[in-house]
Design a protein around this nucleic acid. Structure first.
Lengths: 211, 211
DNA sequence: GCACTTGTTGTACGAACGTCCAACAAGCAA
DNA sequence: TTGCTTGTTGGACGTTCGTACAACAAGTGC
């Protein structure tokens, strides 16, 4: 992105102002931030990179958010919301059979819209921020606790004994995260369908033995 | 870390030069880099932060490595080596029973020296670099392929059918990674011992059904 | 057309970045 | 003690960072 330093600022005729509603602008900045986090990682994510990705001027980040950290936090909320909605939708379509519901909930993570390498990469970037940013850590804790609680409920509906619920939920959550990680970082190793099969196998083991 | 800008440079009497052998100095910079990556994440890891952590002057990073990226790559190699050695040691102590060996190999990830929150946090930082840095991606691919290959061998020794080896190895690797992630990011949720129990349960499922 | 509201641009600014290197200094041998 | 080798310091330099904001401009109502 070289800037020809001898080139004068754009004339009035050359500047292109494109107005957008505040919510729409905020949303497009959030999406741009997610994409930059995914592609460049945390180290390559800057106000200028996000603005360039969004096709706007850098000042807009400061105008619409209390700074880049606030934008990243808003991006976390957006991505998390997208994942939650996909899980909700999977459950809504799963019917009432407990095993089908459990499987739908877990395997939704390996289908669109979740199993998108870009979304997974953004998610990995968020993981890497948890320890250094208390705000992201809070968001992370809430989201994970909610996911695990829900998973426990679904597992309980499948007859997993109460004494084993917690560990089963932790294990399934870990398996999903680990498969996400490798789906994203080593896409040549296996794909989303295989990940779903692996997860199904694990669920079958857990629910068949009540282990 | 405010620097009193009116304070003159240290006089000759105040400067403290401490010499170290090149290898020792390189190693201490690598360890400092690992600690900073763990604590501050990628975004907070800079030449100055690492040098401060190592108790030396920033110029030493450039003296001993071809820049901060080379130092990070060297840090990856060091941490990976530390993990591999721990796994080797666990296997060496496990005896000849295939099931004991498999369990030792997998649960070693949940014992010292591996299950150290700082090491895990450094590892998460490396994950977040994989997509944006080809060199780290190469290191990552090699390390993961080697781990999975080894795991497949151990699983095969336990009688897991050849047709199921690959997926079993992928699943166990994912489970380990996911448990690492949460051990590090949500230490209040569960501990290393419980992680080991969860992993043992998963291994028992895989090896008992030959699934 | 004008005035006002409100969204946009792009740059100034101080701070921090990675890299480079001259000056310094520890340690050793003669 | 001197000279040499080699490790260390810390600051210069150009670049990039996040933030702030003056100037600009789109869009609306009168």
């Amino acid at each position: 992105m070289p800037q020809v330093s001898t080139k004068p600022a754009l004339t009035r005729a050359e500047r292109a102002y494109t107005r957008a509603e505040p919510d729409a602008r905020r949303h497009s900045l959030i999406l741009a931030c997610a994409r930059v986090l995914a592609r460049e990682g945390v180290g390559g994510t800057s106000v200028r990179a996000i603005a360039l990705e969004a096709g706007v001027s850098p000042g807009l980040v400061g105008h619409y958010f209390a700074g880049i950290d606030a934008l990243v936090a808003a991006t976390y909320a957006e991505v998390e919301s997208r994942v939650s909605e996909a899980l909700d939708a999977a459950l809504a379509q799963a019917g009432s059979d407990p095993h089908a519901r459990l499987e739908a909930f877990v395997t939704a993570s390996f289908r669109a819209p979740i199993a998108d390498p870009e979304l997974l990469a953004t998610w990995i970037a968020f993981w890497s921020l948890v320890r250094a940013r208390p705000g992201i850590a809070r968001q992370h804790d809430e989201q994970y606790a909610a996911f695990r609680l829900r998973l426990e409920q679904l597992l309980a509906d499948c007859g997993v004994p109460a004494a084993r619920l917690r560990r089963a939920a932790i294990g399934v959550t870990a398996l999903v995260d680990g498969l996400w990680l490798e789906l994203c970082l080593s896409p040549q190793a296996f794909g989303a369908q295989e990940a779903a099969e692996i997860a199904r196998g694990a669920l079958a083991g857990i629910t068949s033995t009540g282990r």
